[in-house]
Amino acid sequence: MNLWKEFIKGWWKENPVFVMVLGTCPTLAVTNSVRNAIGMIAAVAFVLLGSSIIVSLIRKMVPNQVRIATFIVVIATFVTMADRYLAAYYPDLSRALGPYVPLIVVNCIILGRQEAFASKHGVLESIMDALGMSIGFGIALILMSTVREILGSGTWLGMKVLGHWFIPWQVMILPAGAFFVFGFLVWGFNAVNKAFKG
């Protein structure tokens, strides 16, 4: 029961992107198409799960003063693996995501979960927390990229969904469009959370 709670809290109530407002850099930068978003979600989920397991396993042997440095080494190892894997097997995606895969190292969702959760809990709880947070991150990026790709290019995952009459809103695939959509979604998430609390 407790594990289940750790798993689902990241989906909505503690959504890392819209409620905790962490990891906004990839959220704004790579959501101009659903395909890029999926690549980013997979990379972040892999890194988050891997580092949570390792950090949770080593949490008792790492001295308190060097814990952040050790966590970063663990995270960077997984990020580099993800980056090399994408470059080798998905070269197009790797080029589209550009520097944002290596930048997962400094993604606050990942370091934040290690510091706030994995370094204080057992392996099983940390796995549940990492999976839940990855799903929350996934929900956020899919929502963002769906709105932006449909309005900005008239397509979804590369498939045409709006007819020829539709003139793409160029601004949606530019950085400004990311901020518009992000603002509306943060408002929506928090409005719903507030309504259910009361």
């Binding site: 080593i58 790492v62 001295p63 060097v66 440095a69 050790t70 080494v73």
Partner: peptide, 10 residues
């Protein structure tokens, strides 16, 4: 111990 742990992980 700090040096040892960090070196080991690196």
């Amino acid at each position: 111990r700090m040096i040892a742990v960090l070196t080991f992980f690196a």
